[in-house]
Amino acid sequence: MATDQPAIPLDTLTQSTRGTSAATVAAPDSAPKRRVRPADIGWYVALSLLSLIVLFPIYMLILRALSNPLAYVAQGQPLYPVDVEWDVFIKAFTEADLGRAMGLSLLVTTIIVAVQLLTAVLAAYAFAFLDFPGKTAVFILVIGTLLLPIEVTLIGNLETIRGLGWLNSLQGLTVPFLATAFGIFLIRQGFAAVPRDLLDASQLDGYGHGRFLFRVAIPVTKPIIGSFVVIAFLGGWNQYVWPRFATDQSGWQTVQVALRSIGSDRVDRLNIGFAAAILAALPLLALLIFFQRQMIRGLTAGAVKGCRCSLCSSSSNGR
């Protein structure tokens, strides 16, 4: 991975999406509105068919959550809901303990995101604005962690956590993730866009590094920091393997791990598990709707231009 690339021109991507309301990475809509042409009908048909394929699995989940499980099977598994039970979403909280699981997930994710941001901003600042002996060595050490995702280090880390007595604890769920190479590189690239003359000028004015960081570097990098926060939240909320093995008491299950009981549930209770899965996805759906621009910028960081290291790939979707 190249370390001396100029800042990613993420802004180009931002600009194209800015001002579009519900847009994803939208096509430029500077073009005047056109009438629908006959040839477009074919595209609408194709796009609708593709949408049906993408959405069908989600439709089935909603359908199965709403239907009484036994009645649904007795009806021969139709494509419409059977004996709709709306209170299934309440039962997910009262019977499946979803409230506790979601609360824990929210707490764990918030801690991870907040501290990751802190450690990443500090480290990125050092790489972008400070000269010190061993800079290259430290940089290589950070890059090296890309080859050590939690799946690789799982066994070793579990023994560490066990030794510390951190199984089934907030520390156990969060501390291994409090630093991220992805965040460091992303934010460093943002900082790289800040002219170094600005640092020199601010130092002439008597600013220290701390004030420069908070008054200049962070404000200028806000869009990238925003993207990082959204992506880090996505990754933290979606984590499965680590919380699955760092806990063995149901009271310490995060919401993703709690969904696991679906496989062992009685058939007449399956709808509660399906409803829980829908509820578990809602926070991310909100994230996708309200922070779409940040999410897309974060997900495409490195893909279209700029850093394309496997770190960006493995960290950006937290599995």
């Binding site: 579009t20 309301s21 519900a22 847009a23 994803t24 990475v25 939208a26 796009l47 593709l50 949408s51 993408v54 959405l55 699995p57 989600i58 089935m60 989940l61 996505l234 909320w237 979606n238 499965y240 993703q256 791990v257 969904l259 696991r260 679906i262 598990g273 399906f274 899965a277 578990a280 996805a281 991310l284 759906l285 994230l287 996708l288 999410m295 897309i296 997900l299 937290g318 599995r319």
Partner: peptide, 21 residues
């Protein structure tokens, strides 16, 4: 944009949710 939103929607699913799906 409606289609683009639909096509990007599975970003909101975690691996556990996708597995339940």
């Amino acid at each position: 944009k409606i289609f683009q939103t639909i096509f990007s929607s599975t970003v909101a699913t975690s691996v556990a949710v996708a597995s339940v799906v």
